[in-house]
Structures are given as C-alpha cells and as structure tokens.
Design a protein around this nucleic acid. Structure first.
Lengths: 288, 288
DNA sequence: GGAAACCATCGCTTTTCACGATTATATTAT
DNA sequence: ATAATATAATCGTGAAAAGCGATGGTTTCC
C-alpha cells in the first residue's frame, strides 16, 4: 500500500529536480528522501528516476511518470479531504430536520434564520411528515408534539394552549366550560398525535362531543367552523385569527400541546446540529 | 497527513460494524484497529464513530461520514494507481517514435505490427520531422539517417545504397561512372541530412553536378526526372520503381545511406520501448 | 587534478506499529 | 440482582519503520 507521505516526496523531487532540494523543501534530510524514493521504487517494481550522477538533476522514468501522475491525483484528493473536514468543523455541512405544520410556521423561521447567518454554506433539509411515532433514524433533529420515547433526548420548545374556535355568537364571550362541549358538534384533526390526547382528556372527563368532520389541514378546519359545521378545539398557534371566528379559553384548561425538539441520545452531533440545538434552547427560553 | 492504511481500516469498520470484525477481516487485532481509528480521530479533530458500548455496533458520526466518503475515494484512486502500474509493467502505455519518410514506409510497418500484437493496449505516437539534428528530448525512439551524436545509443537498422535515377536511354544500362555526373543536371533534396553527405562525397571527388531543382518530396523528385529536368542520386528505398525510370548503380559506389534507431543513453525505458528496440534489432538482422 | 554537486548506504536513535493481556462498559440471559 | 457475553480502550512490550548524520562513490565543471 502506497503511503501519501512518500508520494508527496516523489512529487517534490519531480518538482525540484534533485533529492537534496526536495529534502530541503519538505524538511527532510537527503538520505530520508533517498530512502523514501527507494521504498516507492520497490513497491512500483522499478526505478522511478534516472540518476545521471554528478550535479545533474534526476529525471523521471516512464514508470515514474505513471506513479507521479496518479500520486498527484491522490495528493489532491487528500488535500480535498482535509479541506472538507475543516469546513465541516467550521460548521458547514448538512442538517436534516423533521418538522410539521406548527413547527414549520412558528419555530423554524427564526431557527433557520440564525443558523444560516452563522453558517452560510450549510445545507438544511426539512422532512415534513405526519406521524404518530417519531423516527429519528436518518434525521438529526425532529420537532414533535410530545416528549417522544425510546432512546431520545428532548427539549421542550413550546407549550401551546388549546382554545375553542367557534363562530361569534355561538358561545358567550370569554371562557367556555368543557362540559358545554358534551354532544356539541366539533370538527377536528384525525385522532392522532395531539388530537388523540385531547380526546382522551375529554373522554376521561366524561365529555363526548359529536365529531362531524375530520381533516388534517388547519385552514380547512377553520373554514368548516366559519361555515357553521361545528366548533373546533385547536392549539392556539394553529389558528390564524379572523373576525369570522371567536376564540374562547376552556375551563378547565386542557393540557397544553407541547412541542418538543427530539434527537437520538448518545449520538455525536455535527457542529451544525449542536448549534441548532443551542439556538432552539435560546428560542424556547424566549417563548415560555 | 492521512495514511491510506488507516483509511482502509476506517472503511472496514464502517462496513463490518465493529472494530473486532474489521480487525479479523484485515488481519489486524482489535487493539490495532482501535488505535488506528484513534489516530484518524486525532487527525480529524473529533470522533469518527459513536461507541454505544456493549455488544452494539459502532456508528459513524457525521464527521466520520465525511472522512469515510473522501477516504473511499482515496482508496479507489490508490487502487487505480497500482492497476496502472501493473498495466505499465505488463507493457501497456505510450511510446513516442520520431521517424521520416523512408523509415515510415519501410521500417515502421513491421515494427508497429509486431509491437501492437504484443501489446494491444499500447499507445504508439509518431512524430515526423525533417531535421538535421536529432532531438530526443521528449521522444523515446527516433529513426535518423546517420549515427547521431551526443549522449545517444544507436542501432544501425538499414544500409541503403545510392542509385542514379534517370530516364531510360539517358545513360547506358548498367553502372554509371561517378564522373559522368560532373556538370550533369540533377534534381535533389535540399542539402541536409543524407543529401549533404552525398554532395560532400561528390565534392571530395571533384565532381560538381549542376543542381537544377531541389525539393523535399521523393515523388516530386521522381516526377522531375520523368519530366526530363535531370537525373537524381537517391537512396534505393526512396525510389518507387517505374517503367519510365531506369536505375543505375554508381561506380564507385557512394557511401550507403545508413538509417539508425537512436535513443537517449542512460535513460530507463518502459517495457514497451525496450520491446520496440528488441524488435528493431531483430528487424535489422533480417535486413542486412 | 581538485572542487562541487549529486545520490547511496551505514549505523544509530526515535517513532510508529502491532500484538497480547487486561480493564471498563453496556446488553442480555438467568 | 447477577452472571454471561460482546464490545472498545488501554497498557506494556517487542518489532519494524522512519529519520538523521556521516561517509563513500560518481560525474561534471573549472
């Protein structure tokens, strides 16, 4: 197996013309250069330089030219490698973030903004999936509306209170008691993630609303409310305010929808990911 | 400077999942693999693998992925290099040959034929130059109509006798005495190379033909002879025979035009060049 | 013929490499 | 809980390689 150090010496000899000058350029002694070339020649199976003797410069043999050509290529790749490592350590590189609607709209913009400012060369990829089980397999960070489970570290980023969304006039202004929802027509998300927890809480309180429509889109739900299909219990940040809608706190309050940032425990992060977590931590502090 | 051996170990660990299995695959011990990875990690400035501990496989860190990606590239290039060296030693590669008209027509075809048969992958480049001074700077072998000079090794390939070319009837059939050419109109090559030697010989014998036309092309000269412009003294192999031409030996004979194969002395040859010289040697033996 | 500019080689020291044995750690089975 | 198991890290030792300085041998130039 060729050694890069020896190939660098070969290139230096080819550049400088003599073993001695190459040695000076590289900080070796002439004898070391002589031995390094000897090793290469043994490995290549023939002389790489013709040594005319006397004060004349050595000259590449055809075999030497072959080895040198490939050697330079190798050295360039090696340099590219150290450059890539340096860039990586400086924070460039890639970060993959899993996210979902509310996180995308509320949390990601300031996070990505700050991350890009600090690392202009970085490559941020977003993966938006509606899922009940967080999958951190190939993803660095993931926003999730729950603490997740398994071998995961977490950061609670946001606690989003649930509100009742209705048409103005359907309820008296101000808080609405939970039990008023018993039998009331509601539109809602499919019963996964946060919605599943909401319904479990209502169920535990013996309250059974009448779910008249389910869909995944926030805007679609709000449109249904405006159309009078029913009210909706939604996290505050999922609601884009509107004069055709009135928002009511619930009494008693439902548990907040908690948004966490999750990452696989025990995994070494790139500087980019580490920085993203720091930013998220700062962001979370500002939001609570 | 990264070492290829360690990068190969890195790749093996990534492939096999654990240090121990990589060690088995490469014929190292586990501790050696551990140390090699440690060296790489020191060089890269951070861990390349997460070690979950226990019987679980190690896992590349993002930094490790960067190093591995470039490392594999390097290893592939190194393999390409050893392959190239092997091909070279097997006789592939390039050979540059300097030549000229007669050599191209007479000597090169069998030479190249045999060379290509032996080394189908080789790259033969011809450089056709009319020159008085052989320049072997960047050329492996050179045909030249003289022994050359300087730091050169040579092989006499061919001795080509000079003949007088005239229109039938201009001279009596059979040998022509040199002195008959004194004052006779001749067409000839420019007075370089072999032609210079021919004229020097005539001059030494006190014979001064009348040169009525000079040009470099053999066919052009013969056409002039046919047209009755004059006779020509040419090497036999430069003449393509013809019923409109009659060839006469000269009396006394002029020194043969000698064609040599030249190469720079003390230069290590590629197997291809060495083989070409061998073939030429055999060829020369068959031609004399 | 001597000086100068080369490369090769030798003996020695330092560094690196590899190994085996041991230790530490985390999972899995009991 | 405890033992068994599978893993990586570490330590000490011996071997190999690398590097250095000195020396010797060539060739060219003056």
């Amino acid at each position: 197996m060729y050694a890069l150090r020896q190939l660098a010496t070969l290139a230096a000899v080819a550049d400088h013309g003599t073993f001695g000058r190459a040695a000076v350029a590289l900080g070796y002694t002439q004898s070391s250069v002589s031995q390094q070339i000897a090793v290469l020649e043994k490995e290549a199976g023939g002389p790489l330089f013709d040594r005319p003797g006397g004060p004349r410069p050595v000259r590449l043999t055809p075999l030497g030219a072959v080895v040198l050509e490939h050697g330079r290529e190798l050295l360039a790749r090696a340099q590219a490698m150290t450059d890539a490592v340096d860039r990586f350590r400086a924070g460039d590189g890639r970060i993959d973030i899993g996210t979902f609607q509310t996180a995308t709209n509320v949390l990601l913009p300031p996070l990505i903004r700050e991350l890009r400012d600090a690392h202009p060369g970085c490559d941020i990829r977003l993966f938006e999936e509606e899922t009940d089980v967080p999958d951190l397999g190939e993803i660095d960070l993931m926003f999730f509306d729950g603490p997740g489970d398994g071998d995961v570290e977490r950061l609670k980023v946001l606690a989003d209170p649930h509100v009742l969304v209705a048409r103005p006039g359907d309820f008296a202004p101000g808080p609405v008691e939970l039990k008023e929802l018993d039998g009331h027509p509601l539109v809602a998300h499919p019963a996964i993630c946060d919605q599943a927890r909401v319904e479990a809480t209502l169920d535990a309180a013996g309250i059974a609303p009448r779910f008249v429509f389910r869909t995944v889109g926030n805007e679609a739900l709000l449109a249904m409310v405006r159309a009078g299909l029913g009210a909706a219990v939604m996290p505050r940040l999922s609601v884009t305010d509107d004069q055709q809608l009135s928002l009511h706190p619930l009494d008693p309050q439902l548990p907040d929808r908690e948004i966490y940032l999750l990452w696989q425990a025990g995994r070494t992060h790139s500087p980019l990911v580490a920085h993203a977590i720091e930013i998220a931590r700062k962001l979370a502090a500002g939001l609570t």
